[in-house]
Amino acid sequence: MTTSTSPISRPGLIWRALVLPAALIVLWTLLDAFGALNSDILVSPGKVLVTAYEGFADGSLPGAALATLLRALTGWVIGATLGLAAGVLLGLSGVARGLFDPSISSLRQIALFAWIPLLSAWLGNGEAMKITLIAVGAFFPMALGAQAGCQNVPAPYREVGRVVELDRRAMLTKIIFPAAVPSILAGTELSLNIAWLGTFGAEYLIGTGYINGMGDGLGAYLAAAREYARMDQVLLGVLFLALIGIALDRFVLGLSRRLVPWRMP
């Protein structure tokens, strides 16, 4: 008799992923019920729900979340596009690698927030500076992923192209770029994660600013909550950052499953 094993269904995975958050919420509620919470450190779940209702009612919370999301996506698109172009160039051209790879590798070692003083001196503390900081964060992982994908195409793939006498253009479109897709997607995921972290850091550390009239973003929301010791707003802002970050990560994972299903669980 043969037995077969099947992978856990996606609904099953979702339920398993919810076990830990649900357990933490239950523990949080029980601590509040027994009066074990210190309001200066952790407020009650009911207080956070009331604050969420108020934030949605006056539009401040969705406005801040939308401003942060738009700011993150704008910087990410700019940085990832430039990174993709640079990575493809470095991956395909030995001359370009010799000229630019050492410099890019050196700049990649600089921590993202270490760019803030220099960018502030050049661009001020407005929207252009925030977007540039996010783009810098997105540039390097995308460039690295694209370069690795184009440069490390397996030799048998290239040999097939030579055997069937593909020209340069066909070699790129039919052999090199398809083989580079997994590395490019890995760079996409990492660049988006860093862009999201950079967005929060830019909003939290640099200060106020407006994008399309929608407010300062979740980073400024959390900075203000800290200044006024509003732990309910701090918890709510952190929760929104986590939920949006998870949604962006799921989007990239779904894209990867469609483009390279044979490499995805």
Rank of each mutant, 00 (worst) to 15 (best):
R226F: 06
L30G: 04
L37Q: 03
L118D: 00
D232S: 11
I25R: 07
L241P: 03
F251W: 11
I206W: 04
G245L: 07
I244Y: 01
Y228R: 13
V153Y: 05
L61C: 04
L20H: 05
P117K: 10
I8C: 06
D101A: 13
A223P: 02
A225T: 09
L82N: 01
G94D: 08
G46S: 10
I25E: 01
T81L: 07
F140C: 09
I110L: 13
D58A: 00
Y210L: 14
S39W: 03
A33Y: 10
V88H: 02
E127W: 04
Y204V: 06
Y157N: 12
V50I: 15
R10D: 02
L119R: 10
T81Q: 02
G215P: 06
Y157V: 14
Y221C: 00
A36M: 14
L89C: 13
P62K: 05
S183R: 05
P7Y: 04
L42Q: 07
W262I: 08
S4P: 00
L18V: 01
P7W: 07
A64T: 02
R250Y: 05
L205T: 03
A186P: 00
P261W: 11
L119Y: 11
A138G: 10
A96M: 15
R16Y: 09
L112A: 11
G217D: 04
C150G: 01
R158V: 11
T5P: 00
I134G: 01
L49V: 14
E127D: 09
D32S: 15
T188N: 04
V19H: 00
V234H: 09
R250S: 08
F140E: 01
P154T: 05
L166P: 08
A96S: 14
A23G: 10
I175R: 11
N152E: 04
G126D: 07
A242G: 15
R250Q: 15
I206A: 06
E54T: 00
T199C: 13
L24T: 06
L20F: 14
D167V: 13
S103R: 13
T68L: 06
L70Q: 13
V181L: 15
R97V: 08
G137D: 01
V88W: 02
R263M: 05
Y228H: 06
G215D: 00
R257W: 04
L89F: 09
P178M: 11
S183K: 05
R230W: 03
A121W: 12
G46V: 03
R16E: 00
L205V: 10
L241E: 00
V163A: 14
G217N: 02
G83S: 08
A57M: 13
R71E: 04
N38I: 04
S191K: 08
A143I: 00
W122L: 15
